[in-house]
Amino acid sequence: MSEAAAGLEQLGASESARRRFLRRFRKQRPALYALGFLVLLALGALFAPWVAPYDPLTQNLDRVLESPSWDHWFGTDELGRDVASRTLFAARISLMAAFQAVLIALVIGVPPGLLAGLAGGWVDNLIMRFTDALMAFPPLILAVAIVAALGPSLTNAMIAVGILLSPTFLRLMRGTAMAVAHETYVEAARSIGCSQGWIIVRHILPNVISPLFVQISVFAGVAMLAEAGLSFLGLGAQPPDSSWGAMVGRGFRYISLSPSLIVFPGLAIAVTVLAFYVLGDGLRDALGREVRRED
């Protein structure tokens, strides 16, 4: 290699994996907007007590079921509470619930998935048959059964959702781990004398992580939707706490008097779930391996 070429290479040198990911992610416009929206929403939820125009629990029985106005942007509910403030406070519950469910799904899905994929044989068979049985259950029935057994509370509902989502994480990890374990670089690691534990930590885990991020984003949306459904049915958030799903559930009773009551929390659910999906899509494209060999 000539001096000049070497110099050139040095200039364009080293781009860390993170920077490469960021460069490619920046090209994913919709995903960027989705991420921006989610960050704003999270900040709004976090600082709700300071941002919200009214206290979400203060009742004003003189002004019930009002339509949107300059005083009450989203109108008022059946007890005269400000819907805009309530929607913002409900974002805390809804986001937290989605986070809980995904975390639970990760904890019960990922380790056995990796184990099944790496151990193979009867271990794999046992874990997968158990997973099949879990997946064969109608999801809503299972969720209702779990909530019925543990008692209605948001955390219990999210445990149910987490359990329901875990098989997908399990299967994803199993498949990815199996594929990575057969890569030549894993065989190469064995040939230089790496121990089994070293291979798993240094070679397999770093290479199974990226598909996981995509799935986490998509499942945050799914969990939020599931939470909305369960809360709508009264199996999730319990008063005085309120999530978006619970708001829709309560507002539903007054749909003929004040249709706007369900529109805003409903819209919040739709837009947020969509944002999680779009973000997941963008992550997949930015992390995707198939476009990695751009040269």
Partner: peptide, 16 residues
């Protein structure tokens, strides 16, 4: 004893 593999595209860990 050490080994060099056929395909240099798959024998190096892409995350390292």
């Amino acid at each position: 004893l050490q080994m060099v593999f056929q395909d240099p595209y798959s024998s190096l860990d892409p995350s390292m």
